[in-house]
Write a protein that binds this DNA or RNA. Structure first.
Lengths: 204, 204
DNA sequence: TATCATCTGGGTATAAACACCCAGGGGTAA
DNA sequence: TTACCCCTGGGTGTTTATACCCAGATGATA
């Protein structure tokens, strides 16, 4: 068996919430229900969800707004939007800003279930990449200011001597920083360091 | 003034074709019309378009299929789909496979025009990147087999000595290849070489 | 045939990277 | 005060990289 799937379900209509939760439960989905996007946003950091299913039309923060907020927070789990009164423009806007799917009510419950399973499968793949990247980012963040400066210039292709001139320190000191930062960030050679810098989108 | 915009317009309905061409002409858009996606696909390599506007429902290759075909060919210009009988699922599918926009008929012609201008602006930006990348790719392709092999291993972080062991040649020969390929591909140091390798997605 | 690119390997010298070591000064927190 | 981390700079020796030079063998092409 795979890991249990945990779905965040958001809808201001309690009847929809109940009915979908029941359906999800029958299909081995673990569900957390929220009446508003705000409630969900308050809880999202403290719980691990595999997928978000949200209504579009809700008082306050709409489903579309929710996608924007989650993007801004760096929330990488897939978001499926459902709506009873959606139009094509809305659907296009939703997908463009990164919603995983946009489904019109009334819908075949199996259609939603299939989309969720799809979303979770794809989402879990990229979760691994994101986690890897976050570990890298935290290693980078643990570098001292000087080490970061030296890294940026080294990655730009400058020699220790050139870096020393830029930073007004001796090339020897640069070599020291260089060795320390390579060890800290876990790069075994310059090529690895450059790849790491590109992955965290290090810009001068 | 900016460069004139050249739009490829595809629809099996001659009336739509004529009416849109007129409207485009009045708005300083250069238009090439096609009755089928097949006709367009036959002409696409010999002409430079800034943007594609295509109907979805057409005999033969549909607008959705067209997006797939163009993606497969590496065609990077934005594609706007228009349709008279579209539904949300279709719109979602279109955007997911990379269509720039999906507009329902009847539509406000200004809405289409705005989307085209948007598309062209965004498209032209990435065209520059793509052209740059193609120049890089062609420089890489001009490398000899040995040079490519040495580049791959150098980019992986191996020293000339290690590369020599892998390829069963002397480290001295590797150094020669290394210098030659750096000059050819235009890399001034290892860091640049690694970045180039990542851009062309060089895999071992 | 002659030329050109490529692959091969060497020589030689300088520059740079790398791996260790050392120590003083400064700030911060237990 | 002590301990810790950071920045600074140096010493020393080894390993690589880089930049030139050289030339023979090979294969394709004009």
């Amino acid at each position: 068996m795979v890991d249990p799937i945990h779905v965040a379900l958001i809808d201001d209509d309690a009847a929809v919430l109940d009915s979908l939760r029941l359906y999800f439960a029958r299909n081995e989905l673990n569900t957390s229900c929220f009446n508003t996007a705000e409630e969900f946003l308050a809880a999202v950091d403290s719980t691990q969800f595999d997928c978000v299913v949200s209504d579009v039309r809700m008082p306050g923060v709409s489903g579309l707004d929710l996608v924007g907020h989650l993007n801004a927070r760096g929330f990488v789990r897939p978001i499926i939007l459902i709506t009873g009164h959606g139009d094509i423009d809305m659907a296009v806007a939703a997908i463009k800003i990164g919603a995983f799917d946009f489904i019109e009510k009334p819908f075949d419950e199996n259609r939603l279930l299939a989309s969720i399973r799809n979303a979770v499968e794809q989402g879990r793949q990229q979760i691994g990449d994101v986690a890897e990247l976050e570990r890298l980012q935290s290693r980078f963040n643990s570098l001292s200011l000087r080490q970061r400066q030296v890294m940026e210039l080294a990655v730009a292709g400058l020699s220790s001597k050139e870096i020393g001139k830029r930073l007004n320190i001796s090339s020897k000191t640069v070599e020291n920083h260089r060795a320390w930062l390579m060890e800290r960030i876990g790069a075994r050679n310059l090529a690895e360091l450059v790849r790491m810098a590109m992955q965290i989108q290090l810009r001068s």
